[in-house]
């Protein structure tokens, strides 16, 4: 908040919070050409969610939600999204560190490639995973013949598909935090004799923890909602690879009310988790 804005805000709303203060000033706080599109944007994002609540089959809801299939799908979704986030943390944070701290030729290109799954249609990601890790894929065929491991149609396949789509969110978030972090702390650690790895572990990691947390939440949320790559790579089998988004999509084919009920569950879980991690989220951004 700039000093100019502070003076513009009348004293009364300023007592509540700085944000509320600017809101109250019609003329100088929020110009109309910005306010109107902003409100439209807000409505655009919230009205569909509201519609879900309005059209929800509330009377039949307990019945819809107590079916074993719903909990099976929800449980699988939560397990897989969490596992995918764990995988992303284990390999994504080191990747972010390398991208932020190590000078090497083609770094910009590598960074762009890492973010590719963000813009790739998830179904394409799923096909790409099949080409790489499928039973007949360039890596997968060796996994099959050496270890007898086939990943498609397994829960592990769901985790991989979700991690593939979600990890870039984590890498971008962590890398951004690393770049913004003060490097003098690491340099100080180095002058005191710490190895680069020790400095990473004892200095850098605690320093960027909020960024990691924010990235992990983003990745988790993305993994939870993942549909295209999952159904393409891991297929759809109740209890094994059928996550909530898959259950929602298939329910929609014949029973829209069930689909809405399932969507509500997913919405509730997402809101609960994002709300629970709100404070960490705010400090990071």
């Amino acid at each position: 908040m700039t000093p100019e804005e502070r003076t513009a805000a009348p004293p009364a709303p300023r007592k509540r919070s700085p944000r509320a203060g600017t809101w109250a000033v019609g003329g100088r706080g929020v110009p109309l050409p910005l306010l109107l599109p902003a409100l439209l944007g807000l409505a655009f994002l919230l009205v569909p969610l509201l519609a879900l609540l309005v059209r929800a089959p509330w009377s039949g809801l307990p019945e819809q939600l107590t079916s074993a299939g719903v909990w099976q799908a929800l449980r699988l979704s939560l397990i897989c999204a969490t596992a995918a986030t764990a995988v992303s943390l284990v390999i994504g944070v080191p990747l972010a560190w390398v991208l932020a701290r190590v000078e090497f030729p083609g770094r910009g290109l590598v960074r762009a490639l890492v973010t590719l799954p963000l813009v790739l249609p998830p179904v394409v990601g799923g096909v790409a995973l099949l080409m790489a890790l499928g039973r007949n894929g360039i890596v997968g065929r060796w996994l099959d013949s050496w270890f007898g491991v086939t990943l498609p149609f397994t829960t592990a396949g769901v985790v991989l598909a979700e991690a593939f789509v979600a990890m870039p969110f984590l890498v971008i978030s962590v890398e951004g935090t690393l770049r913004a972090a003060d490097r003098r702390f690491e340099e100080a650690a180095a002058t005191l004799g710490a190895s680069r790895f020790t400095a990473f572990r004892r200095v850098t990691l605690p320093l960027i923890a909020p960024g990691i947390a924010a990235g992990a939440v983003l990745a988790w949320a993305r993994a939870l909602g993942e549909f295209g790559a999952t159904i393409t790579f891991a297929g759809n089998f109740p209890g094994r690879t059928q996550t909530m988004p898959l259950a929602v999509y298939l329910a929609l084919q014949s029973d829209p009310e069930a689909a809405i009920a399932l969507s509500l569950v997913l919405l509730t879980v997402s809101v609960a988790v994002l709300a629970g991690l709100r404070d960490r989220w705010m400090t990071a951004s």
């Binding site: 498609p152 759809n236 690879t241 298939l250």
Partner: peptide
């Protein structure tokens, strides 16, 4: 089955790609 596909093309593709 190992999977219940969301449409007939999905079921076909899995065989085309030799995954099923």
């Amino acid at each position: 089955p190992v999977s219940y596909e969301q449409d007939v093309k999905g079921a076909l593709t899995k065989v085309e790609l030799k995954e099923a």
